[in-house]
Design a protein around this nucleic acid. Structure first.
Length: 465
RNA sequence: GGCGCGGUAGCCAAGUGGUAAGGCCGAGGUCUGCAAAACCUCUAUGCGUCGGUUCAAUUCCGACCCGCGCCUCCA
């Protein structure tokens, strides 16, 4: 099945395929800046990219090379280290570990290589040297190095910056030492009042300091994937200036096409507006888990909107996701138990799911097709081919049906509630329904719901608002 | 001001020039001491507003209203 995906530069839907004769698909996804916990908007992008990764694995088995960076030196990471009065490396390690844990909880496959900016200083300096030598970059009075956008005729192709009016009322411009408002920093000279002890030897002729943001991706891509890659992705906000600048740097340095396919996912809105701490609609994965939702529900919710459209996230959408996942988990169990080896024939019921995913990554249509198929299939009559097809679909979407809240590890129930439940069960068995009802109310008041089964009961925590 | 995206049922959300996928919620039913779960059934004559094109528009065109994003280090 071909994977077709919107391409940001040409603004057309195009098929993904490797360009090199080795058949390896080279995929780069801009990663997080590790200075704070990633929020659910960040994870929208990473989950979408994880589905791309999974589709690529299915399409080009064993031939996918996925690289995602960690930005571990920039204004924000340094600022956080200064605020906490701790070494930069300690801060970035802490948030990197949390990022990895969150990604794992969301069932995102780890990239094959995850380079860091601080681990790629030499490669960045080398590129800057080349750019200076070729006349695409210049040293400023303070020893910083800037990229000269007028030296690259293709500048602005991705974001169509030439069609824009750049705002010139810009204090950054005044504070910097660049020749043109559009020029951007490749190397930032060390400033003791801002940078603490964070500095490296710079490109030849430049002061000591640290790399600018954009050059890290160019350098890491060149190092780990080569001069031309097959797919480069990120959130829409990276389109300009980040990706525009990457193209300029890489193509001027290497003289070849940088990325053959660009893809950008849209932002997540919360309650209809941009997420921000001051609006009180800012969520991390931990925030949602603390409210009783499972990470898988978030993953499902993040996939419930078209990746190229803004998605309005609400807590209600997590309710919906939890319920939907439960139904899928039931179906999965039913199929596992009921699938018959009788027929060998191919299964086609889930084809619509892959058709939707392959058609510009239409995840909401894919989920719709999935439910249409599930509703049309009696697990007891499913064939082994149906079971395999279902599992393949679930793999592609990255839904781990064993970790939904229905099956998730139970939080420990307080002993007092456990005791009330025992009393109620006894009362019920001796047909003292008045006492049983009273105890049910008490248990509910303690924040638990008692679910009667045939030969026993379960206690489930009520969700916090 | 410039560039771009969107407005589809109570909520979320696909989609198409020929009459609206799917999920959640809700309602009814089966089951059940109660509650829950599960299963079955139902739930937009309508797709921001007003015009236009067409045999036919939610889908194309125009205007307008509303919301959102980007415009130098935010996924």
């Amino acid at each position: 099945m071909a994977i077709k995906l919107f391409e940001s530069l040409s603004r057309e839907v195009r098929e993904l395929r490797p360009s090199e004769p080795d058949g390896v698909f080279r995929f780069y996804n801009c990663g997080p800046t590790v200075y704070a916990p990633a929020h659910i908007g960040n994870f929208r992008t990473f989950v979408i990219n994880d589905v791309i990764r999974r589709l690529l694995e299915l399409e080009f088995p064993g031939k996918v090379r996925h690289v995602r960076n960690l930005t571990d030196v920039d204004d924000r990471t340094i600022g956080q280290a200064r605020t906490e009065k701790r070494p930069l490396a300690e801060i970035t390690r802490k948030w990197t570990e949390l990022f990895h844990a969150d990604c794992a909880a969301l069932n995102c496959l780890p990239p094959h290589v995850e380079p860091t900016a601080t681990g790629s200083i030499k490669e960045q300096v080398d590129m800057i040297d080349v750019l200076m030598r070729k006349g695409n970059a210049y040293r400023s009075a303070d020893g910083s190095v800037y990229f000269k956008i007028s030296s690259f005729p293709g500048y602005g192709a991705l974001s169509r910056i030439r069609e824009r009016e750049l705002k010139v009322t810009n204090s950054v411009f005044d504070a910097d030492h660049k020749d043109d408002i559009g020029d951007f920093a490749l190397w930032k000279a060390y400033k003791s009042e801002d940078d603490g002890d964070v500095k490296w030897a710079g490109p030849s002729g430049a002061a000591e300091g640290r790399p600018g943001w954009h050059i890290e991706c160019s350098a890491m891509i060149k190092k780990h994937l080569g001069e031309t890659i097959d797919l480069h992705t990120g959130g829409v906000d990276l389109l300009f200036p980040h990706h525009e600048n990457e193209i300029a740097q890489s193509q001027c340095c290497n003289g070849t096409t940088f990325a053959r396919h660009w893809y950008h996912s849209e932002h997540l809105l919360v309650d209809g507006t941009t997420m921000s701490k001051s609006k009180g609609n800012y969520y991390t994965l931990s925030d949602l888990v603390a409210k009783g939702y499972s990470p898988m529900a978030l993953r499902y919710a993040l996939l419930s909107g078209h990746p190229r459209k803004q998605l309005n996230f609400t807590l209600d959408s997590l309710h919906a996701a939890e319920s939907a996942l439960k139904a899928l988990a039931r179906f999965s169990e039913g199929v596992a138990a009921g699938a018959k080896a009788l027929e060998e024939g191919a299964s086609t019921v889930f084809d619509g799911v892959f058709r939707a995913l392959g058609d510009d990554l239409n995840t909401p249509a894919a989920l719709g097709a999935l439910f249409t198929a599930v509703n049309a299939t009696d697990p007891r009559g499913a064939t082994l081919a149906d079971k395999a097809a279902f599992n393949r679909v679930i793999y592609a979407l990255g839904l781990d049906l064993s970790t939904t809240s229905a099956n998730a590890s139970k939080p420990s129930v307080p002993e007092a509630v456990e005791h009330l439940a025992k009393l109620r069960w006894e009362a019920k068995k001796s047909k003292d329904f008045a006492a049983a009802d009273r105890l049910r109310a008490e248990i509910a008041a303690s924040g638990y719901s008692m679910l009667d089964g045939k030969d026993g009961y379960k206690l489930e925590a009520l969700r916090k608002a």
